[in-house]
Design a protein around this nucleic acid. Structure first.
Lengths: 211, 211
DNA sequence: AATTTAACATACTAATTAGTATGTTTTCAA
DNA sequence: TTGAAAACATACTAATTAGTATGTTAAATT
């Protein structure tokens, strides 16, 4: 039996950690909501997949809706930045970066993962008309995506990759729309060739606005 | 009191009509599901907004899922043909028709209606990963939309409006993707100017593939 | 006209739901 | 060390859920 406590200094023997617990709930909730929808998941479902109980859940989130809000603000929004914005920094031409990321994160994704769609788009379509608090936060997340994309497009313009007369705000909106559209389409279709079709068309559009 | 029955031949005094009742349930269910999502609507919700009761509902549909399937096949699919395909017949150049219909049905829609998004896209995003029966039927509906769009693009090609080397299947997929993307975007954003931004970009893309 | 059957209505059930009330254990500051 | 508060656990509740069992009425058939 090794239940003896070694006399060496306790190496971080915390059994309770607010931040870690919150993160565990959010992580589990994210996957559940991602795959079954916000209204399709119950608080009990989430709790069951957690190492905690209902008491813990409601210690962290006053209502199920507040958990949903936290998912948008604390999980999904940072994820968008991580996956779609930050990687663009490595590209001299942001337009190349956008196409590259589409290829990496969507084109190269296994079909099983594509079937779940986009976490943000899923919630926009499901919850935006249903709850004002959701709508507000989802709108903020979408605008964040658009604004950050626009910044890189402005950089592209400054570097001479984009025609002088292009409206980068408009293009940014179109680019984000295409991301949502790609995800939505590939979620509904099974056709693995569909991505290339969409990708090729977007590439053609990029060619028009490029120098 | 006018409760007397005129001796004139009964002018269709049916109190029970299978088809009419089914249609009433489907119509009510469509609006409820359209605005609150399939999982956000209960059978009792639907029944309450109907002139019938639960007994009638389960006389027409064995389960809630079967009602959902009927919504896709009997309500939404015909609606897509009516709104997005049939109108194209009036246009000499189908590409003009597609842009016109986008302007009519989305650009000129009141924001209150745009907030509900697209009935098909809503269900694709919410239900496609959740239930196989849904996925299959939603996929069929999407492919119907794509195939019918492709037919008109082939007509455009035959008439010389499209470049000879364009792949009409690919373009059709991109067009439907754009429709879903437009709807999804405008549902999340509030910006009334967003439509024009998206529209302009799509128009530029059309210019590339046109003669 | 009588009888069968189709088109419903009414009343129920067992499971699930979000949320609460109250207890227990860990942590940390004095 | 102690005591208070934070971080949970347990046990409950009232409402809602999809679905059923059974009754009733209108319509079609004979």
């Amino acid at each position: 039996m090794k239940s003896k406590k070694p006399a060496t200094k306790a190496p971080k023997k915390q059994t309770r950690d607010l931040e870690k617990s919150r993160k565990e709930i959010l992580d589990v909730a994210f996957m559940e909501v991602f795959s079954r929808g916000f209204q399709g998941v119950s608080v009990d479902d989430i709790v069951k997949k957690t190492s905690m109980t209902k008491g813990a859940f409601y210690h962290h989130f006053p209502t199920k809706l507040e958990l949903g809000y936290a998912l948008v603000e604390d999980v999904i929004s940072p994820m968008i930045i991580d996956r779609w914005i930050t990687p663009l920094e490595k590209f001299d031409n942001p337009l190349d970066g956008i196409l590259q990321q589409l290829q990496n994160l969507i084109g190269n994704s296994p079909p099983a993962h594509l079937k779940l769609g986009c976490p943000l788009n899923n919630l926009v379509q499901e919850m935006s008309p249903v709850d004002k608090g959701f709508h507000k936060r989802l709108q903020t997340a979408l605008n964040l995506w658009i604004d950050e994309t626009e910044k890189h497009l402005n950089r592209a313009k400054a570097k001479g990759f984009l025609k002088k007369d292009v409206n980068t705000k408009k293009v940014a909106q179109f680019v984000v729309m295409a991301h949502e559209g790609f995800y939505g389409m590939l979620k509904g279709l099974d056709d693995p060739k569909a991505f290339h079709a969409l990708y090729d068309s977007l590439e053609q559009y990029f060619a028009v606005i490029s120098t």
